[in-house]
Amino acid sequence: MRFEHLGVSPRIHPDAVVAPTAVISGDVVIGPDCQILHGAVVTAEGGAITLGTNVIVMENALIRATATNPAHIADHVLVGPMASISGAVVEEEVFLATGTRVFNGAYLGARSEVRINGVVHLRTTLPPDSTVPIGWVAVGHPVQILSPDRHEEIWAAQRELDFPGYVFGLDRETPDLMVQLTERYGRSLARHVHDRRVD
């Protein structure tokens, strides 16, 4: 399914294959020989998304962009089932295994690999040829790649990256943070009420 969002329709190369149950919404460019499989969602939420050539987006994966962080996926990238990429740059020949999470403002260098359920956190730079092991977390710049049992170290780096401030423009110490966050984000997402199916 393809949708016009905020007045912009997806542009899909004729050699790309998009499954009928995939959702492509808004300012999205999909290059030649890409494969977008069943249940995948590629949604431009106010920012552009570009997929190069031979990008594979597997079942139920999510790629989204924001007004602050467009998403760019370079050539020969595999985005595994149930992976999620939000407003990040992924260079060529990157492998993102099942369940990986890549957050806003992240940069993944060429030929890097994020293994099953690995995380590349907000505003993190993963150098070329890096590996994030199964379930581990890459955080910061310069990057630290930490096992999940090192929560205090992950949290110390993550706190400095300021997820609520960077993504939602809200101070983490706001007493009613989730009230403000859900109301503000909900208003933004409500712009989909004017989407128009174009296929």
Rank of each mutant, 00 (worst) to 15 (best):
L170F: 04
L108V: 15
A97W: 05
T21S: 15
A22W: 03
V57G: 01
I63G: 06
E173Q: 13
V29F: 06
T182Y: 12
P32I: 04
I154N: 01
G99L: 12
A61L: 00
A88N: 04
L78C: 02
T174G: 05
I30T: 02
H192W: 14
I63Q: 04
P175C: 07
G31K: 02
G140P: 01
A156Q: 12
A74W: 11
H192N: 06
A16R: 08
V41P: 03
S112Q: 07
A74F: 07
F163M: 13
E92V: 07
E93K: 13
E92W: 02
G52C: 03
G80A: 01
M82W: 09
T100H: 01
P175L: 08
L122C: 04
E153N: 01
H13S: 10
L146W: 02
V18Y: 05
D27C: 09
D199W: 09
N54W: 02
L161G: 09
P20L: 10
G165C: 01
D15P: 04
H194D: 15
D33M: 07
H194Q: 14
E173R: 11
V17K: 13
I12A: 03
A40G: 12
D75Y: 04
Q158D: 13
H76D: 15
N60R: 04
T125I: 12
S130P: 02
T43Y: 00
V28A: 01
S147N: 09
E113N: 14
G7R: 10
L189R: 11
A19H: 15
S86A: 14
R172S: 15
A157L: 10
I116M: 12
Q180I: 00
Y107G: 07
I63K: 02
G109P: 02
P148W: 01
V23W: 06
R196M: 05
A106R: 11
L181S: 04
L108W: 03
A190F: 00
V193Y: 10
G135E: 09
M58D: 14
F168D: 05
F168W: 11
S9A: 15
V137G: 02
S188V: 12
N54H: 15
P14S: 06
L146H: 01
P148Q: 04
R159M: 06
N54L: 03
V143N: 00
E59A: 00
L62A: 07
V137K: 10
L177E: 04
T182R: 13
D33R: 14
E152K: 07
E92I: 01
V28R: 00
V89R: 11
